[in-house]
């Protein structure tokens, strides 16, 4: 049995390249282009500078490996908010939909957990707030100082979870990240938005 017509190495290279390029154009390039130009969900605002910087911290620290940001239209996801629509993601590049939930979905976390203090303590040591949590501590987003300087945001760490001496002060990166987390609020869908 021979591969007739496929005994020229260039026939293999060119035929595979041609077929694969066509399929890739159909399944990646064209959807990539068309879905990049969706209309934003009415009421959706672009990120502020702080929120954008915070989003960069989120990406850089790999938060999306454990926290998804997409709500599916199924009963299991109702706890995380309303089902996501394409217009919700218009300002989200890089996309952070994620594919694992070692932690809960964060699409609407700004609504569920709006407290800055909670978020800061949780980033310093998640187990100070949720005993069974397996989230890592992000201690490098904080500095431990002997005493707070004017303008420092001191984290009120519960006893037993802080350093033996001094105070825990949030860095700019921590504050930006919390700004971003607090911005994660779904805009309500109007009937006209759904019909689009």
């Amino acid at each position: 049995m021979s591969g007739r017509g496929m005994n020229n190495v260039w026939a293999i290279v060119l035929s595979t390249a041609l077929v694969y390029t066509v399929l890739s154009a159909l399944m990646a390039v064209i959807p990539g282009i068309t879905m990049s130009h969706m209309a934003p969900t009415p009421g959706l605002k672009p990120y502020t500078r702080q929120e954008r910087l915070g989003r960069q911290v989120y990406v850089s620290e790999g938060c999306a490996y454990c926290h998804s940001q997409v709500v599916r239209p199924i009963r299991e996801d109702a706890v995380y908010g309303r089902p996501s629509v394409g217009g919700d993601f218009v300002f989200q590049t890089p996309e952070l939909l994620g594919d694992h939930r070692n932690g809960p979905d964060l699409t609407d976390i700004g609504e569920r957990q709006p407290s800055t203090v909670w978020q800061l303590i949780h980033l310093w040591d998640p187990r100070a707030l949720v005993n069974e949590s397996i989230m890592p501590r992000y201690t490098w987003l904080f500095t431990v100082k002997a005493r707070a300087a004017p303008g420092d945001v001191v984290v009120p760490v519960p006893p037993g979870f802080g350093p033996s001496t001094g105070v825990v002060v949030a860095t700019k990166r921590a504050l930006h990240l919390v700004d971003y987390l607090e911005s994660l609020k779904q805009v309500p869908l109007t009937k006209s938005a759904v019909m689009k």
Binding site: S24, M38, F89, T93, E95, L97
Partner: peptide, 15 residues
């Protein structure tokens, strides 16, 4: 230069 938001999701699924 051509993938933003959901467009990037489509390319990510492919890749």
């Amino acid at each position: 230069y051509y993938q933003y938001g959901m467009g990037q999701v489509a390319v990510q699924g492919y890749f």
